[in-house]
């Protein structure tokens, strides 16, 4: 019985997670995840936090030009 539990757990999880890894790889190929690295690496930037904008500072730090906060100004107008 103990044997069966171990066999089932180990083999079962190899099939399940190995399968998951295959599916994940296959999906990402089909989906074009590996196609445009330039664009992909920029997917974490937004219009209001574009490439070139620094987004963190110590709370008491003076604002440098990099942290200039244009979007909140924009929002006050809208």
């Amino acid at each position: 019985m103990a044997d069966f539990i171990v066999y089932a757990t180990v083999l079962g999880s190899i099939v399940f997670f190995g399968g998951a890894a295959i599916l994940a790889m296959a999906w990402s190929f089909r989906n074009g995840q590996f196609e445009n690295f330039h664009k992909s690496s920029r997917s974490i930037f937004d219009a209001d936090e574009p490439v070139g904008r620094v987004t963190d500072r110590f709370p008491d730090a003076p604002r440098s030009h990099g942290t200039k906060n244009s979007s909140s100004e924009a929002s006050h107008r809208s």
């Binding site: 690496s41 920029r42 490439v51």
Partner: peptide, 18 residues
């Protein structure tokens, strides 16, 4: 995520990261 996001510069080589 944090390094590129804070300094506002995409990772050096996205291909390598994958």
């Amino acid at each position: 995520y944090i390094i590129p996001k804070v300094i506002g510069r995409p990772v050096y080589s996205y291909y390598l990261s994958i």
